[in-house]
Each structure stands twice: as structure tokens, then as C-alpha cells.
Design a protein around this nucleic acid. Sequence first.
DNA 1: ATAGGGTTAG
Length: 707
Amino acid sequence: MIAASNLGSAVLEKLSFLLKVLLCWYILSMKAIIFCTRQILTSNKFRGIVSSTRIHFDRLKVEVFSKEVCEIILDQYPGIKTLNKLHSKIVVNEHLRIDPTLAIKLMRAYSACGETSVARYIFDRSLEKNVVFFNVMIRSYVNNNLYFEALSIFQVMLSCAFNPDHYTFPCVLKACSGLDNLRVGLQVHDAILKVGLDSNLFIGNALVAMYGKCGCLREARKVLDQMPYRDVVSWNSMVAGYAQSGQFDDALEICKEMDSLNLNHDAGTMASLSPVVCYTSLENVQYIHSMFERMAKKNLVSWNVMIAIYVNNSMPNEAVSLFLQMEECGMKPDAVTIASLLPACGDLSALFLGRRLHKYIEKGNLRPNLLLENALLDMYAKCGCLEEARDVFDKMKLRDVVSWTSMMSAYGRSGQGYDAVALFAKMLDSGQIPDSIAFVSVLSACSHTGLLDQGRHYFRMMTEQYGIVPRIEHFACMVDLFGRAGEVEEAYSFVKQMPMEPNERVWGALLSACRVHLKMDIGLVAADRLFQLAPKQSGYYVLLSNIYAKAGMWKDVMNVRYAMKKMGIKKVPGISNVELNGQVHTFLAGDQYHPQAKNIYEELDVLVGKMKELGYIPQTESALHDVEVEDKECHLAIHSEKLAIVFAILNTKQGTPIRITKNLRVCGDCHFAIKLISKIASRDIIVRDCNRFHHFSNGICSCGDYW
DNA sequence: ATAGGGTTAG
């Protein structure tokens, strides 16, 4: 009997052991299956089979529905649909419904989906709250930028006599940072000191961040220095503080301090530098690039920040090549990458890459995204593709004042002032309130088309109806408007009445008007002021000599040339870019080095022959041509835009439009020549010079010979 | 059971 019972218990023991093993195996394999399923569900590659997998996934949940399975699923941060299903199953189960762990994990998961109100609902329904409930609720609000709500929960927590801990304080401090509320931040700091939690790493980091965000950089640094332990986040918080306050050099000093401590920068360091990516020194850009290169783990944000730094510091070529490098590394660009890179495409007139980015947007379903669409619209506008820009504009579901302004200045720069004015009216109809920059764009559109009365009307509308105080840009537009329309005297009296000191652009507009309408007296005044304001700018000397030449005052032309030489003023060399199959070809005046140079000059000779039949007289030898053409050797006298155009004619199919980007203004000779070439070669030629587009078609230019 | 630093336009 005893033996039998022993045997029985031994068998039972064995059986129970076997059962345990089986159960463990079952749970483990379920974990594995659920994990894999989640992986598949969250991976983009498998989007196509998600629906069929989800059915399978749901069946799994039903079969092994337990607290443990729920936790596993919740820890994976499911999407809102799965979350809702799981939640409804938990609610109807009387054991699971009251489980605090599940309630907390549910709150966390809902907050990750942006559903703070559901998180709050669970929080309110949980009768036996503890500190963790409060911590998670505060964090839910903070992660969804609801800082005010976070602080009010913190208040409730204190009034219920719960003691905030080392999980609570970092979140509360982040809420203070988010609200820029130094007052509460200081109170929280006091409370931290009272309970002696100031030596905690996370709390210290949050304090550095809070003081930094509130602009108290000395206090931030003091906290940093007094921390018993620091990690990379502590330093990053300090970097972010300086960066957010616009103290770029100080932010970089911290990065260098990290270097000297042999502390590696991480992706967060790069991200912290982002607020001040604009207009820093070349040296700083190079240092940040070296940081970027040395970083062991680059993430998407690091690439995005580096690209943005290049774009914002007028290094579009570097931005583009970094982007190509990023693609090679297999890093997928997102909306931010593309929105940062599009302005670079615009600067370079790199339409090929711009169109490729457009396809990225379509394929990645990145629309609607206002910022991205605005950037795309502006890229097309800067590449001279007015129709494509308009297409982007028309397809936008939402437009802001930036969208309207971009589209208006696109019309303005192309000489379609009437379209710009019409769009301005449409903008007002749509209820969009124009701001100061919107008025700059409509005013400059008026001046480019010679719409004198409309320009006056908008200037009055801006000041009287919208109460916008005109800035120097508006005055420059008005001077340009009067000047182009031949009202040079009025332009000058406008300059004299300006409430601020006129700048280079204002006097430059006046000088240009004097050249067109041959106003020697005012022209001399303007030139004199310009030589004081910008003594090294060759363009104004050229303009002045043009005026003398037009008046037949050759001796003065020579004097200007002499003065330039004596002062060592060198002209910025004229450069023309043309894109062919995604590659940008750059031409200089008289370029001999291009592989196709021989063919280009031969074709140009043929063209010049045909142009002469239509009445073209080359002006390279005449004094009206700009002064820096000193060398009489004929090839050197040929401006870069002509070479770029002939190159494009030789290398693209008949009828393809040609797009050229120039760094300077087009000269009179080239302008006349390009008009004839557009007729002879039957090509639309779009030239972007430093301040507008010339759209040549069938012998006529969109600027109406007025630029 | 819970935590800190962070990106895009005229």
C-alpha cells in the first residue's frame, strides 16, 4: 500500500513535472509567437499581409488570454485597434479588471497612442491608486505635450498626501520646461532638495534641462557641476539649453568639453544642437560635421540635423551629397529630411533631385503635411516650374500664409504680376490674414510687372488696414516699383522720407532705375551711398559705368574702371548652372575646360550667324557691356549663360525646355541673344538670375525687357 | 509596474 502510494506519488510528481515543463514550453512558445507576430505587424515591409496576420493574432489572444499575455502585448505598445480589443476583454474579466499592473500598462499604452483621455479614464476609475498611478498619468500628459494637465495632476497628488519620488520629479520638471514656467520649476527644485533627491541622475538631468529651457543657463551649469554622477544625457541637456537660447558657440563649447572628457557624443547631442542650425561660422559647421562623423550610432534625427545645418548655412551641395550618403547607408529619409533638403534643391535648381524627392513624398504617403508641401511648392517655384508649383498649391488641403506667399512670389519672380495680385485677392477671400512677408511678395510682384497703382494700393492697405509697420524690405519694393515705372524722382523722395536709414537694397533699386531711365544726378547720389555702404561690391561699379556709357560719357566709364582696379575690387565670377540627367554642369565665362567645349563653341558660331540675320549685333566689344570683360580674346568674352544654353541644346531632345541658373544679373547682350536663340532653336529657355526669372519663348522674354 | 536630452517652409 505504502509502496503503491509511493509509486503513485512518484508518478504524480513525474506527471506534474512533465506538465510544468509542457506549460513552460507552451507559454514560452506563445511568447515567441506573439513577439514574432508583433514584429510582423509593426514592420512596414509586411504591411500587405497584416490583415491576414491580425486574424491569427486575435485568435491567439482568445486562446491564451491571461494576465501574463496581456502584459506581453501591452509592453509591445500595440496600435489603437488592438489596444481597444484587448481593453474590452480586460474590462469584462473580473480578475483582470482590478489588476493595478494591467491598469498602469493600459494607461501607458493609450498614452503612447495619444489617447490621454482614455488613460485618464482608467486613472479615475482605479480606486486604489498608488504613486505609480500618478507618475504614469503625469508622464502621459507630458509625453503628449499637455503640461498644464500634468501639473494639475501633480497638485492632486500632493493634496492626496502622496509623496512624489525619483520617477515623479523628472516628469514634473519637464512639464515646467514645456510651460517655460520657472516659478513652479524653482518650487519643484526646493521640494527635491527637501527630500534629498537632488543626487539622482535623472532628476539632475531634468533640472539642467528645466533651467536651460527657462534661459537660466548659469543655474543649469551650477546644477550640472554639482551632480555626483553625470552621463551623456546630462551634457546633452546642457547643450540643448545653450542651443535653445541661441548661444551656439557656448553649445559647441560643451560639445568640446565632452570631447576632452572622452565622453562620446550620441544622437541626442546632435539633436540638441538643432535649434540653432542657421547661419553659424564655417568652422562651427565643420566641427559639427566631425562630431557627426565620429558618432558611433547615427539615427534619422542625426542625419536630418546635419543636412539642415548644411542647408541653412548656404552649403546646398554638401547637403545633397550627405543625403546621397544617407541613402547609401540604407537610412530611410522621412518628411523632415525631405522638407530640409527641398530648399537646397531650389537653391541649386536641382530639379531632377527635387522631382525624386517629390516621388518619395508620394510613395511614402507623407502628405498631408503643411511644412513639407510648402517646401515642395517653393522648390518648384525656385526651379522655375510654375505649373508644377501651382499644382502642388492646388492640391493642398490646408494652406497657411507661407503657402500663399510662396506662390505669389513665384508669380512675381516670373514677371506674372497680375497672377500674383489675383492670388492675393483670393487669399483675402479665403480668410487668410496677410503678414509682413506676404506684403513683401505682392509688392515685389507689382514692381516686377510695373503695376504702379496696385503697388501703392497694397502699401496703403498694409499700413492702414492691417496696421503693419513697413520694414525696410517694403520700402525697397516701393522704391523699385516707382523707379521701374519711370517715377525716379518720386522714388528718390520716397527714399528721403524713409523713417530708417536706407540700406544697400534701397539704394541699389534706385541706382538700377537711374540706369534704365538715365537719371544721372540721382544715380550719382545713389552710387555714392552704395560705395560707402558696400565698397567691395563690384556690381554697383558696373551699374554706374553702365549709366556713364549710356550717356556717352566714356571718360567717366574709364574712371570707374580705374577706381575699381585701384581698390582691388574683383568681380564675382559669373557662373551658370544647368542640370543634365541629375548632374549639375557649371560654366564660367569663356569656359575652355568643359569636355564638350569645342562642340559648344562651334555650335555657338553657327547660332550667332543665324542671330545676325535677325538683327543681332554682338556687344561684347562695346562699352555697354560690363566692365570686367577686359580680355579681348573672343572666347573669354562669352558669358556663361550662353555656353550653358548651347550645351543644353546639344544634349537634350528638340523641344525640351532649358533651365539655367545664374549667380548674377543677365547682361543686356545676353538677354537679347537668348531671346533670338529661343526663336531660332524653338526652345523655351528659363533663366533664373539673382533676383528673378526670365522665361524666353519664341523671341520674347517674360520680363518684358525690364529687369 | 514608472524615468531624463530632440528634427521640417515664405
